[in-house]
Design a protein around this nucleic acid. Sequence first.
DNA 1: CCGTTCTAGTTGTATAGTACAACTTGACCG
DNA 2: CGGTCAAGTTGTACTATACAACTAGAACGG
Lengths: 147, 147
Amino acid sequence: MTAAETAVETIQREMTVFARRARASAGRMHPELSLVSYTLLGHLEERGGCRATDLAAHYALDKSTVSRQVAALEQAGLVERRLDPEDHRVQVLHLTEAGQEILAQVTQSRRAAFRERLADWPEADLVRFAAYLGRYNAGTPAGSADD
Amino acid sequence: MTAAETAVETIQREMTVFARRARASAGRMHPELSLVSYTLLGHLEERGGCRATDLAAHYALDKSTVSRQVAALEQAGLVERRLDPEDHRVQVLHLTEAGQEILAQVTQSRRAAFRERLADWPEADLVRFAAYLGRYNAGTPAGSADD
DNA sequence: CCGTTCTAGTTGTATAGTACAACTTGACCG
DNA sequence: CGGTCAAGTTGTACTATACAACTAGAACGG
């Protein structure tokens, strides 16, 4: 086996390990906001309002899944829905103030955790690792073999 | 923000993206074997037989979860349990022939998917990326901030 | 040697996240 | 208009998971 093949297998194995653990630990870290909710809130923050359908398409989730997630987030007071005056089928989703706060807080705690874990990495390695991850995910058309 | 801090944030974001997608796509790739089952089977293959408790500890899963997973795998004829003659509380788990076959087949298809996705990466990058992932996961004492 | 305590595993119950299918409401097009 | 398309919701089902209560077997200490 070539070095490249060995490397591919390692990547596969390590990504699998990582994937298996991710959600559970995210939940443990901040029980108030699941990984999905966090992601959706983050998206809303970035875009400053978007439709449920966009979220579904962007994250390769079923619209019913998004619908329920959004319902829960609204229930929790983290997002609000505004009826699009142009098209009454559409609800434009916005973060509430509480949503922004929680998002910031969770982002903060996640960032701290990552920082701690990566604390003893040389900067050059961090930069390269970040680039690799970006390249890896970019090669993934939201729904293929991304485990 | 320093370059290192930026890199840490990118790593965090990309890992999150990856984590969110992983399970679903694994399921799509080979519906016959979930990510968890695959991992457990792989472990069994590596060790050539181990106890359910070891699996639970190693993967930070509840013993009840492992118990049900194993039950399903046994039902499917992929593993078999042998009562430890030394200690009748213990069931030593072994892959069956069918289990080995399916495991090999899924490993094959997963490997192919990864290979394809990483096809245009230079070998040096693959090797470094693999090393980074290994280091990252190794820094994770099975239950901390590994998302 | 027997009772207490520990360990392995199972089972009951609950929850989250997810998908698919059926439906409702509103828009758009000819 | 009327048919078709798009956005969301709701019903239903399944998987992975955890926690708690339980059973069965082992081990240790008086």
